[in-house]
Amino acid sequence: MIIFPAIDIRGGKCVRLLKGDFAKETVFSDKPEEMAKKWQAQGAEFLHLVDLDGALAGKPQNLATVKAILAAVDIPVELGGGIRTLESIDEVLALGVRRVILGSVAVRDPELVKTACAKYGDRIVVGIDAKDGIVAVDGWGVSGDVEATALAQEMKKAGVKTIIYTDISRDGTLAG
């Protein structure tokens, strides 16, 4: 089993939201690259990064912070949050990110996911974030009007090999 420590980035800082609520934010560090180094020193084999500003804006917003993290660690990094075009996927992977996590676009443009899987294979991951089994999109603020299990089945058919599932009601609660 590989445990993926998560670094959620908002405004260039390492934060945690409670149940995805941007008004309930805890700032852990204004230097996410130092947190990344800490996780690596504690034995992390892979890091999970989320660009929270990107998730809201619909395009990556914290790439300078991602670059700083990549420069600080030797372990692979995956990134999600606002990656909704093939150009964004290309840009993020070109930085040195190992895997790209697609969320909202999996609901809104499954053909893009299929195209990305054909081009990049297992470097494409889908993030399914759900409340009461229904997928949420756009930084978890909007219902995607699709059941999480149905989306997972559709993404498997599109060629996705890895899905990251988040139960929004438990996110940030330290309850597993």
Rank of each mutant, 00 (worst) to 15 (best):
R99G: 14
L95P: 00
S143R: 01
S104T: 14
I89Y: 10
A106S: 14
A150Q: 09
K161G: 14
A150G: 07
S104F: 00
V107E: 03
Q153T: 14
V137I: 12
I128Y: 14
A150H: 10
D90T: 05
G81H: 11
V105R: 09
I83G: 08
A94G: 02
V77Q: 01
V146N: 07
V146S: 05
R108T: 12
R170T: 10
D74C: 03
E87G: 03
L93G: 13
V113A: 07
L112T: 15
L95V: 10
D167N: 09
R98C: 14
A94F: 00
L112N: 07
V135W: 05
G133F: 02
G133K: 10
L93I: 11
G81M: 11
I163Q: 03
I164P: 15
Y165D: 03
G144A: 09
A118T: 08
A130M: 05
P76V: 00
I128R: 04
Q153P: 03
D129N: 10
R123P: 14
D167L: 01
I168Y: 01
T166Y: 04
I164L: 15
L79I: 04
S169G: 04
G121D: 14
R84F: 03
K161N: 05
S143P: 11
E147S: 01
I164G: 13
G139M: 01
D90R: 15
K157L: 15
G159R: 04
E78A: 04
L95D: 04
S169I: 02
V97C: 03
I124S: 07
S88I: 00
E87F: 06
A116H: 01
V142G: 08
E78M: 02
G159Q: 12
W140Y: 02
T149A: 13
G121Y: 10
D90Y: 08
I83W: 07
K131Q: 06
Q153E: 15
V146Y: 03
R123I: 13
V125C: 09
S88R: 00
